[in-house]
Design a binder for these strands. Structure first.
Lengths: 289, 289
DNA sequence: CCCTGCCATAAGGACAGCTACTGCCATGAT
DNA sequence: ATCATGGCAGTAGCTGTCCTTATGGCAGGG
């Protein structure tokens, strides 16, 4: 009675009006069908069909049961087609290029969840600088890339955004301002400066250039944010970093917002030329939630 | 995979986040559950869950499948409750009183269909005259009775209606009228008359009385309609019968409508005092279609 | 009256699915 | 590091379900 094949048989009997015909339709013996029907009626404790000389017709209760049996079979059919439709997404690979910070903070938890939802899809990540991403995309070497402040013509899915924050030694003159004070970009860039890039072309220098300013006194240029913080602590200079690069341990540092906030936005973009693979669109679909 | 128990397991795993816990919930061994899950994924050809160290979580495809599995289990539950609710209607008896004509023409096919829909309910019929029906109902000796032209205060379900027709010998004077002619009740009742009752108190005499007329010349009074037709054929007199009592073979007879049509209406009524049994209400419900 | 179509039943066997047990792996605590 | 724990997978063997073959019964139609 718990065998779905039997429910298929039940519906077939209702449709054909005969156990023998139904048995043939679902590919079993007349005997098996007869036993199965009897067994179902026995376990339900009620007669579902009346056996008349020439035909087997449903009782009133049988009609209700048949209706629900159709629901069950419909659900089973839906499962089958769902699985078939999902088959292209079961295997595949996605190559994603990103610059280090975003990879660690945003992408990793996201890809973990993705791996749980699509265990058959292999995701490889490349660690690059932000301006290499578009090159890789156009060369079809990656499926997806993380870009900063994407142009609207590429249809990008935004992963997140953060603010640029000024970081100064606690004993710096500008750091003496009240707790909720801010620093203007111009003020900041004219200080002795530790230029940190985090592997990105978008950094204090480019932000200054966009505002018509220059970083006048670059003392050091480092790639790792953490190196920059050490240098700031030692009083080498001030720096400008994305909020999410800030360290948990901030003793010796004063973090201040910019007077005119500057933010950066990370987004995932695909190759504009190529149609995304099934695996890739699965990932993008997951991001839509 | 075709075992409904396995779908229950699948849903339990989704709910509990663990195969072991789900196995316990549905009452099987961890091993059996593990095998069952593996078997389902194998037959579907797709991974439905990802096994992580501490928990077993559904994949994207798994989520869709689980949704449909819930539909299947819901349908199964509906079947169970439907059967349980229908249990009172599975066995029982219905006693119906009727007068002969209605029993043969209207009730029999109806009761045949009912017996097919409710094979466990035994229906016994009593052959009585129409005015005994109400007595039997009030005495609780029957569950349902067929009455003629029911009073609206009893909520009756109408079975059908028919016309009273005049039946005359072909060589009778009134029978010489054109094909579509009619006979007035007054004309008819003053002829030599064969009074047929069919076991009903509603007959030519009572119809006449209701119209302020009397049947002046009753030659014979018979119970069976067919006896009356023989007598009319032999020229003993004319008669007035319900349309549905007319014989198939009408040679020697002229059947004519009344100028002012008289009809009778059969309806099934229950005891107004008692609440109908489950079996009885099943029958009444069937009649609603 | 036999024949046919349909269903039920009996007996036997095949296979699915369960149990019990062991092994493996990752986690987290000592 | 080491061990204990919790969860899953794999194996062997058995049980029970369900199927097949074969037969009998019953009602309707030629």
């Amino acid at each position: 009675m718990m065998n779905l094949m039997h429910w298929r048989l039940l519906v077939a009997v209702a449709d054909r009006g005969s156990i023998t015909a139904a048995a043939e339709a679902v590919g079993m013996t007349q005997s098996a069908a007869s036993q199965a029907m009897a067994s179902m009626e026995a376990t339900l404790g009620a007669q579902l069909f009346t056996r008349e000389p020439r035909k087997t017709l449903p009782t009133a209760l049988g009609l209700s049961v048949i209706e629900q049996a159709r629901v069950m079979l419909g659900a089973l059919q839906t499962i089958r087609s769902t699985v078939d439709e999902a088959r292209p997404m079961l295997r595949g690979t996605i190559r994603i290029a990103s610059f280090p910070m975003v990879l660690a903070t945003f992408l990793t938890p996201l890809l973990q969840r993705f791996a749980q939802l699509y265990p058959g899809i292999e995701v490889t990540t490349l660690d690059v600088t932000d301006n290499e991403v578009l090159t890789l995309l156009d060369a079809n070497l990656i499926d997806l890339g993380v870009v900063l402040n994407p142009k609207p013509e590429r249809n990008a899915t935004v992963l997140g955004r953060d603010l640029w924050m000024a970081v100064l030694p606690v004993n710096h003159a500008l750091a003496q301002r009240p707790a909720d004070a801010s620093v203007s970009l111009a003020e900041l860039l004219e200080q002795p400066f530790v230029l940190a890039t985090g592997g990105c072309t978008a950094n204090a220098r480019s932000l200054g250039a966009a505002a018509g300013l220059t970083v006048s006194d670059i003392r050091v240029e480092v790639r790792e944010w953490n190196s920059a913080f050490s240098l700031v602590r030692e009083g080498v200079g001030v720096t400008l970093v994305p909020e999410m690069a800030l360290p948990a341990q901030r003793t010796g540092l004063r973090v201040m917002p910019l007077t005119v906030p500057l933010h950066r936005e990370f987004a995932l973009v695909g190759s504009s030329a190529r149609v995304p693979s099934a695996a890739t669109s699965a990932l993008l679909k997951m991001l839509a939630d």
